[in-house]
Design a protein around this nucleic acid. Structure first.
Lengths: 203, 203, 203, 203
DNA sequence: GATGAATGAGTTTTCATTCAT
DNA sequence: TATGAATGAAAACTCATTCAT
């Protein structure tokens, strides 16, 4: 592990636990086993360090859901893969994601490009989900819902879940199956229960 | 407006915009048109000021959803009222809610009682929703789903929506109708969506 | 002596001896017997402290030469009073003047108003001298020289003397009489020696 | 241009603009297109770099006025050549001279030899001027003035002019002729000014 | 000779809090 | 109740210098 990587790791952990403002650069340096100056040698400022962490994570998330969305099968199946990828990604990058969620608000206030940069990335995330839903509507695997609004709603679910989980006020049990089922009932055209419904009105 | 109220209002606004750590007591004093010392007269410390804001808000939220949940009609109707109350509450207390969401994480780390206090409050919120769903399952207005997990999922949706809206990275359009519909399709038994389904197959 | 005055005195002494950059705020605080924070309570920044010192001094210098220039008698006598005032002022405010001369260059680079502010003050100083010379030319006490350029030359002499004296590389003996004589020979129309000259060509 | 020269050039420019303390070694390195380490290879320390600049300049100045002073003609003519050389030297070495003037004060405080070294150099400068004046008094081209004090006064004029010009607070017009004339009126015996006087009275 | 990563002491500045009035 | 001057610990950041390559 290079010093640069050690710094990123230490900062990620401390930002996640104590927040950006709550984690002193001196703490990060100590945790990473480097001198304070070394941090400013690699990242010109504390804020830059935060941006690096956020940027790295968002980029890799986007790459991941792109790949998940682009696989074979129906639109609903693509969306399911995206949701499952999301779950795995969450547990693999727990700290970095916490950082991004905690500090996005301050990042979005900072001047100029950074704000726009992150806006662009988040919009890409919504776009991928929207495309899955549109595809699903076309191929009949998803009900005829407003695609973009629905993508937003799914996004809310994911964001909300993560916030609640990392907040630490509520004990959140394992619930992936139920999570998927909740979405499926609302979105999928031919869910098991829908089959029963159709049976009932018997075409 | 008393000085105490002016301080609370100023602090709420500044904590929402700049975060708890990012808002200096001197700024709050200036914004509230009082001397710094006055703040420490009314609230013993800066943290106390934050706790006041959070506590006031959470208490009034709980009272609100309790009332919404306790009205007449089916469980689904009660849940619908809770969701609508939530929407109105969100727009009425935008800044205070932002504060609570931004700072919950740090409150939950602070020692002893505060943590437990807020845990208790949040659990009450989940409980109200769970009870609506249980009631709905009994009276047939809601599908037979695991009540508590489903209450959590609805909670995720609400939390996620608020986070995304206040983050400022994504333009969130008005979508209350779609929000309700999304939940209804997933939760409500037969009736509304079934009607549509019946229309389709019964043409 | 108020704390504010103690800070100004300590800063003046240290800026004079070690330069603006060379004098740490912590040193100033120690010397003034106040806490570091107190300095930032009274002057918002270190630079502000410097500006206060410079401004106070330049203002009082301008008031002084204005008074000296406005007395009775010929233009040359007014100029002589200005030069004598200058001498006294130099020894009375040795440290502050050193600060102004050492740091003017950086002040003149700082943005916006400060630069223009000090430009205005220095121009006023030149103006007073120019007016003395113009008056002297009119009343016949000073030779017909270009008034403004000559004011500048006298200014150079004063500035140069002060720089050399405070630099500490050269031992500068008491030389006020010679200083005045040097100017008088160059400027005064009816200097003793000029009288002799005129006698010589005896109309 | 060797790397050593590039470093000297960059340092001279930056020291002149920002002062010795205000110019970081990293800035100099960047400006000179070398690595930071290279600077410490050629000059053992930052202070050494400053001393190099100052020393080079002062040496070449002394050589220049020595040559100017040693030419043929009267003492006044020698002094005139010295003043003219000074003028040309000022415009040729604007930045280095600014550095010397800005930082002399700190050099003169630094311990031991450096102080004495520069004292010696400056005294040599005064000596050359004194010798011109002494020679002029002997050969009748300069009035019978106290030679050393007068040399100092001429020195003040030169130093003052350069400080005011480089300070940037005052617009200094071209004024070489007037500068010489100012000195001539004060110092030169009879001749030129006497001619004018004679013209006037002898009309 | 040349490099640039690494250092840690030192700098200015911020800020919650106290307390005499 | 209200004030605001005073504090000092802690923060982010700078920078001359060293040294392994």
């Amino acid at each position: 592990m290079t010093k640069r990587e050690a710094i990123l790791a230490a900062a990620t952990m401390l930002f996640a636990r104590q927040g950006y403002k709550g984690a002193a650069v001196s703490e990060i340096a100590e945790q990473a086993n480097v001198a304070q100056g070394t941090i400013f040698h690699h990242f010109k400022s504390k804020e830059n360090l935060l941006i690096s962490i956020c940027d790295d994570l968002v980029q890799s998330y986007i790459a991941g859901i792109r790949e998940a969305a682009s696989g074979p099968g129906s639109g609903w199946e693509a969306l399911e893969r995206v949701l499952k990828f999301n779950e795995k990604f969450s547990s693999d990058h727990h700290d970095s994601i916490t950082v991004v969620f905690r500090e996005t608000r301050d990042l979005s206030r900072s001047p100029g490009q950074i704000n726009e940069h992150f806006c662009g990335l988040v919009n890409q995330i919504i776009d991928v989900k929207t495309q899955c839903i549109e595809k699903g509507i076309k191929d009949g695997s998803i009900r005829p819902v407003p695609a973009q609004l629905t993508a937003l709603l799914v996004h809310f679910l994911l964001i909300g879940k993560f916030h609640v989980e990392t907040e630490g006020l509520l004990e959140v049990p394992e619930m992936n199956a139920e999570f998927l089922e909740f979405c499926r009932r609302s979105l999928a055209a031919q869910a098991p229960s829908a089959v029963l419904d159709e049976d009932k009105c018997g075409g």
